[in-house]
Design a protein around this nucleic acid. Structure first.
Length: 416
DNA sequence: CGTCCACAGGAATGACGGGCGG
DNA sequence: CCGCCCGTCATTCCTGTGGACG
C-alpha cells in the first residue's frame, strides 16, 4: 500500500464518521468556563477580599491553597478577569498580573513577567535580580496603579529557590508612594507554610482561601456541564461520564484529570470510528494517558538520566526488584564507558536519582542496613517494556537495552 | 553500648553560554 | 570591546546518620 492511499483511507474515514465532539476545546484545562460549579464560596470570598481595590485601597494579600485540579487557578483568573472588567467600567486604575511560577522557572523570569505586565521591557537575562526588582518598583510607582500580582504555583519557586521574592513583594508597599500592590499566592502544597519565613507567611496570609478536593458527585456535575458543550447530543453515555468522575475522585478529586479522561476517551472513540463514548473508552483513555505521560517523561530525559534509568533497569532485571546506590553507580559507570561518555560523580548521580524519583519514574527510599551502611533502595516505577519503547528509537541507547553489564555477573542472588 | 559502614545530602565553588550597560 | 551578572550543570568537600555487628 502506498503512503498516499493510507492517508486517503484515514482522511476518508475521518470525514465519513460523524465524530463525537461538538467542541473539543472546552475540555482543555486552560479553558475558562462561564460558570465554576461548587466554587461559589471561594469566588465570593476572593471577590470580597479584592473588592477594596476598586475604591483605591490596597487589598489584603491572599494565600490560596489546595491540591491540583481543585479550581484554584480557574477561580483566581475568573475573579481577576471580572475585576478588570469592573475596574475599566468605573475607571479605577487597577490591573493584575498572573504568573505561573513553575512555568516561569526562576525568580528572574517571574520578575520579568511582572515588569512586562506594567509595560516595562527588561532583558531575558543579564541584569541582577536586585536591579530588575528596582526597575519593577520604579515602573510600578510611576504607573500610578493598584496592581494585583497572582503567583500561581509559588511553591515551585520557594522550594527550588527561596522566599526572598515573596518577601520583597509583600513589603513593596513600604517603598511605593503613588502605587500599591497586593499578592495572591497560589500553592498546591499546604506544607509550603513550613518553608516560608514567618514574616513572609504572616503578611502573605492576611487572608486564606482553601480549596477542598471535589468529590465524585461534584466532579460529575462539572463534567456534565462541560460535556454538554463538548459532545454531540447522545454521544456520551452516562456510564462513561460517571466513570471519569469516579476515577478522578479516587485520585485527589482532580478536575483537570477528569477533563483529560473525558477528552481522551472521546478521541479514542472517534479514532475507532464509533459514535458514542463508552466506559470501555474511558478505561482505555486512562491507560493511554498514563502510557504517554511515562514515555514522554522518559524520552525527554537527559542522556545521563537515561543511563541511570537503564542501570536500574538492568539491576532490576538481574537481581530482583530493588537496587541500591552503589550498584547503580557501578552499572552506570559501565554503561558510560560503553558509550565512551565520561561518567558523572556519584554525588551528581544521587541527585539525578532524586529527580527521577520526583518524576515518578523511580521510587527511592533511604534505608539503613546497619553495619552494612546507609543507602537508598531504588525501585522502578515503570514497566520494562515502557523503557524499551522509549529508548529503542535512540540507536545508542537501544544497544544498551540488551547489553549485559559485567558488574552484574557476580552476586546475582536477590535479597529483600 | 559504642562503632563504623555506605552512603545521604548540604554548602561552596567553578565552568559555561547568554546577555547586559557603558 | 570589557567587566559584570545571570541560570544551569557539575564537581569537590564535607558533615550527618540508622542500626546490625562485635
Amino acid at each position: 500500500m502506498k503512503d498516499t492511499s493510507i492517508l486517503d483511507e484515514v482522511f476518508e474515514r475521518f470525514c465519513n464518521t460523524v465524530g463525537v465532539f461538538k467542541d473539543r476545546e472546552v475540555l482543555r484545562h486552560d479553558y475558562l468556563p462561564e460558570k465554576l460549579p461548587h466554587r461559589e464560596e471561594q469566588i465570593r470570598r476572593l471577590g470580597e477580599v479584592i473588592a477594596p481595590v476598586l475604591k483605591g485601597a490596597r487589598c489584603s494579600n491572599i494565600f490560596v491553597y489546595g491540591k491540583t485540579g481543585t479550581g484554584k487557578t480557574a477561580v483566581t483568573k475568573y475573579v481577576l478577569n471580572h475585576l478588570e472588567v469592573k475596574a475599566k467600567e468605573i475607571g479605577a486604575p487597577v490591573s493584575f498580573c498572573y504568573v505561573n511560577c513553575r512555568l516561569a522557572g526562576t525568580e528572574y523570569r517571574v520578575l520579568a513577567s511582572l515588569c512586562q505586565s506594567i509595560n516595562l521591557v527588561v532583558p531575558f537575562t543579564g541584569l541582577s535580580l536586585g536591579e530588575v526588582f528596582d526597575r519593577f518598583k520604579q515602573g510600578l510607582d510611576t504607573a500610578k496603579r493598584i496592581l494585583i500580582v497572582a503567583l500561581d504555583e509559588v511553591d515551585a519557586i520557594v522550594k527550588a529557590r527561596s522566599d526572598i521574592l515573596l518577601y520583597e513583594l509583600t513589603r513593596i508597599n513600604e517603598i511605593l508612594t503613588r502605587s500599591k500592590a497586593s499578592v495572591i499566592g497560589i500553592s498546591n502544597d499546604l506544607r509550603l507554610k513550613e518553608f516560608l519565613d514567618p514574616r513572609v507567611l504572616s503578611s502573605l496570609s492576611e487572608e486564606e482561601i482553601v480549596f477542598r478536593p471535589y468529590n465524585a458527585a461534584e466532579l460529575r456535575n462539572i463534567l456534565a456541564e462541560r460535556a454538554q458543550m463538548a459532545f454531540r447530543d447522545g454521544a456520551l453515555t452516562e456510564g462513561a461520564l460517571s466513570l471519569c468522575a469516579a476515577l478522578a475522585a479516587a485520585e485527589h478529586g482532580d478536575a483537570r484529570r477528569a477533563l483529560d479522561l473525558l477528552r481522551v476517551a472521546g478521541e479514542v472513540a472517534e479514532r475507532k470510528g464509533e459514535s458514542t463514548v463508552t466506559e470501555e473508552h474511558v478505561r482505555e483513555a486512562e491507560r493511554l494517558i498514563e502510557h504517554n505521560r511515562v514515555v514522554d517523561a522518559l524520552a525527554n530525559l537527559t542522556l545521563h538520566s537515561k543511563l541511570v534509568m537503564l542501570s536500574v533497569y538492568h539491576l532490576v532485571r538481574a537481581n530482583g526488584y530493588r537496587a541500591v546506590t552503589g550498584e547503580i553507580y557501578e552499572v552506570y559507570n559501565e554503561l558510560c564507558s560503553e558509550l565512551a561518555v565520561t561518567p558523572l560523580t556519584q554525588r551528581r548521580v544521587s541527585t539525578l536519582v532524586n529527580e527521577l524519583d520526583a518524576l515518578g519514574l523511580l521510587n527511592a527510599q533511604v534505608v539503613s542496613m546497619g553495619r552494612y551502611g546507609r543507602t537508598k533502595k531504588i525501585r522502578m516505577e515503570v514497566t520494562r517494556t515502557l523503557i524499551k519503547e522509549a529508548f529503542s528509537n535512540d540507536s545508542r541507547l537501544g544497544r544498551l537495552i540488551d547489553y549485559e553489564p559485567k558488574s552484574l555477573s557476580k552476586d546475582a542472588g536477590s535479597r529483600n
